[in-house]
Design a protein around this nucleic acid. Structure first.
Lengths: 229, 229
DNA sequence: CAAAAAACATGATATTTATCAATTTTTAAT
DNA sequence: ATTAAAAATTGATAAATATCATGTTTTTTG
């Protein structure tokens, strides 16, 4: 039931692929697989993490809560992503909370193995570094989008992102269904504003909905809108 | 005149301190020191960099220009910071432009030396990784601030940041004088809105100005405002 | 130093976005 | 299946922010 890291395909997508056989064996022997139900937390902002979580299945939101109750989602993490890595590397408490937005399966890897491999295997360290460099660019892009695009453009982008990253089902609805509140928290806007924009996009024939499910009808129109035409 | 990296104090503040003597010698032999005048670019968004820049003196803004002409400043880099590192690590073109906001002195270090050290010296790689982990956290914080705080709060934060990072002169004015436009581009707002807020802060006795110079009078008030009281 | 350019400042107004209130729909629980 | 709770929706309105216009000050340049 508990599969071995050595034979885990997920590994191909993240920095663990740069580990040696022996390193991987240690990781595999000490890892703990956990099931997390939609809505449950993996870790909370401010906690001290004893390891990282490698996502085998499902999707998690990484977010930060403000004093006034607003929760900004900074990133969505899914299959192959390793979360908690930043704080383990920096030896700091986590700065974001991770909550499952779909049922998940994750492997907890104690930090000793990560840290010792970081200190001795430059390939692994470089691989982690490359991933982090990529995350940093993405974070910078988000900053720029937040300030240079208006809410309508950001909502359009969010749906394009959801489609290109998580795909759509046979009926053309986005595979990952987020609540309107979560969408608002990705976009950084009030729920009502977000809903109004979704309604507008529906009227214009850009989107379709069925319950909380959302499907993209006119991708080109959304792209043009997001780019500012 | 051209000093050696081995004896450069700046090094203590960045990841170069993790280099061995031999590695550092190669860097020192191949580095090129450049003077950059206020307003001049170090590199531009989209360029392919052949190395990184280690800042010896002065301050640079890292920003991204949008189609509609808005320029969002993502980060200010100063003494000891190494810029261009992210794109060298990720082997990508730079995603941000770097322009001097004060006269600068930088050392250009060809990327071969960085890359080869990354591949062989895990201490160095780990050190770079730690720095990048820190930058990533900061970028995430900026995202959260942009969405959870209003313009007034972000302007207040900007001045507190400028004071705590670059200090003030004997007359109590911020050492780093940015144009109103640059401040707006840090905060992510229209120049006029930014100016109005500065005027308001002056009226309330939080700030003083003299030409384009700005001084903080009531730091506590700014802090409280930024935190949302 | 004078003229021109750039940066700063303020008012009037338009636009965007948030908030509050109320209703409907969907989901979850018994 | 029925009811309670949660989520989604819409309208009315307020607040925040951007834009446009115009005047003033500061800086730069010949």
């Amino acid at each position: 039931m508990e599969s071995r890291c050595e034979s885990c395909i997920i590994r191909q997508f993240n920095s663990l692929r740069a580990m040696s056989k022996e390193e991987l064996k240690k990781v595999s022997d000490s890892k703990v697989t956990k099931s997390i139900k939609k809505g449950e937390p993996i870790f909370e902002e401010g906690e001290k993490l004893d390891g990282v979580y490698c996502i085998r299945n499902g999707i998690s939101k990484l977010s930060k809560l403000s004093a006034n109750g607003k929760d900004q989602i900074v990133k969505l993490a899914s299959k192959g992503d390793v979360i908690g890595q930043r704080s383990v590397v920096a030896e700091e408490n986590v700065n974001l909370s991770a909550v499952a937005v779909s049922d998940m399966e994750v492997c907890f890897i104690p930090k000793e193995h990560i840290v010792s491999t970081l200190q001795t295997n430059p390939n692994f360290t470089l691989e982690v570094l490359r991933h982090m460099a990529h995350d940093l660019k993405e974070a910078d892009d988000v900053v720029v989008n937040m300030s240079q695009k208006n809410v309508k453009q950001r909502v359009a982008e969010a749906f394009l992102y959801l489609k290109s990253n998580y795909g759509e089902d046979e009926d053309g609805f986005l595979t990952l269904t987020l609540s309107r509140e979560d969408i608002s928290n990705v976009v950084g806007t009030a729920v009502e504003s977000c809903i109004r924009i979704i309604s507008e996009f529906k009227k214009k024939g850009f989107l379709k909905t069925s319950g909380k499910k959302i499907g993209i009808i006119d991708e080109r129109a959304l792209k043009e809108l997001a780019e500012g035409f």
